[in-house]
Design a protein around this nucleic acid. Structure first.
Lengths: 145, 145
DNA sequence: CTACAACCTCAAGTATAGTTGAGGTCAAGC
DNA sequence: GCTTGACCTCAACTATACTTGAGGTTGTAG
């Protein structure tokens, strides 16, 4: 049981076999082949898969995940040190996304309360009608009916 | 200047003409046609566009945005009341997403600090190796090298 | 009244992240 | 030694959200 078949990896990781194929085709994971050309996965690949899944949860595109994994030794499991660096990086990107979403949420929260009845105070205004902000012209987001 | 051409809408909204065509084809916005079959947009469409853009920023898929817009009167601008209901709804969905991302971020933050050197405490473990949790079997996320 | 920018439709292409299926091979149990 | 589930490749398909291009029409300014 030194190596795992694709089915075993699927079971352990919870991924469909097709996704494992796909990720391998994209260079995210690697396998050896048996005499009969079947995939054989070294155990450390499981850790890479776990890391990839976390990256995805963090909203990192596969191409970027692949790029950072490529900077790591391919033949060993992701080390604690590498993982700390990776998680720091992904945490940063998450921080950004959370900040942006939170700002939007707070703005939406204000819209609920105010009903955006005051055009000049509405945060939506400047963000959405380029022309309208350049003069007293027609207003895209005038919520006064 | 009762009605706007597609180019005018593009300028005001900052959208490419192609996107306006696309959104119309998906039923998100509507237009009348000139004698020569060119699109003519009623002014209230600009507000719908603004609302759509906000929905997108909130991560709402176009199909869902279309569904909620469909419940609104098509011939008038989005009213303050409708907008309040909409923003409440989207804020809720944003709240969820933010909560999930924040949880992940916090977990990542812990990983940075701890280096995940203690398998049994690592939050990643249970989340990622179904088999491994059912016994003392091989460990997907053992970060002890 | 003519030039030309802006418009039209429809098909195909792009990118991401896979899934599905056809047609064929491998390997483990009986 | 044969059956059967697991595996193989490769092409095509799905979904979302658009963009690009070809080939043709409209509308406005001079």
């Amino acid at each position: 049981m030194e190596y795992l078949t694709v089915g075993e990896v699927a079971q352990r990781s919870g991924l469909p076999v097709s996704t494992i194929h796909f990720w391998e085709s994209k260079g995210l994971i690697r396998s050896l082949r048996s005499d009969g050309n079947q995939r054989r996965f070294a155990r450390p690949e499981l850790r890479r898969i776990a890391v990839i899944k976390i990256g995805q949860r963090a909203g990192i595109p596969l191409s970027e995940i692949r790029d950072v994994l490529d900077t790591l030794p391919a033949d060993r499991a992701v080390s604690a040190k590498s993982w700390a660096a990776l998680s720091r990086r992904w945490k940063g990107s998450l921080d950004d996304r959370i900040a942006r979403l939170t700002a939007l949420r707070d703005q939406l929260g204000q819209c609920i309360g105010c009903g955006c009845l005051s055009l000049n105070k509405c945060w939506l205004r400047n963000a959405n009608d380029k022309l309208a902000t350049e003069g007293p012209g027609p207003r895209l987001l005038n919520f006064d009916e």
